[in-house]
């Protein structure tokens, strides 16, 4: 699913990033970064949904090659987080939904989590 479509489903706002053309193949809903690192398996096509707006979230995405992050409950990160995202070409979105609601909505639209993605492959 295109990132643009996901933005619509989550009624999200773009905080950093220009293009929403990226194809997203799996979703990871996590707040603990080690969990993110063990969950994400598809380079360049995962979306991270998280409550954590700390710069380490973007750092983790950079390391794991996650192209996009969506923050929850309308949270917007500090400049340091945004700068890091810009530098690494990572798209940042923000939705007013909770992590639960956002996950539910995307799952309903057919996007898989990490184990379903692995099985499908």
């Amino acid at each position: 699913m295109k990132l643009g479509k996901i933005k619509e489903i989550l009624e999200a706002k773009v905080i950093v990033g220009a293009s929403l053309e990226r194809e997203i193949r799996m979703i990871c809903a996590c707040d603990l970064m080690s969990d993110v690192l063990s969950c994400v398996q598809s380079r360049f096509s995962s979306l991270l949904l998280t409550n954590l707006i700390h710069p380490q979230t973007v750092r983790t995405a950079e390391i794991a090659e996650i192209p996009a992050i969506c923050f929850m409950r309308g949270k917007e990160p500090q400049d340091l987080t945004m700068d890091l995202a810009k530098k690494n070409g990572i798209v940042l979105l923000s939705t007013s939904f909770s992590l639960y609601e956002a996950s539910g909505r995307l799952y309903k639209e057919g996007l898989p989590g990490c184990s379903e993605y692995r099985e499908a492959k």
């Binding site: 080690s34 690192l37 063990s38 700390h54 380490q56 983790t60």
Partner: peptide
Amino acid sequence: VRELGFGAGMGLNNIKK
């Protein structure tokens, strides 16, 4: 540390993988 997104106890395990 947990509030900053660490402390899942997964780090060393991730390294191993």
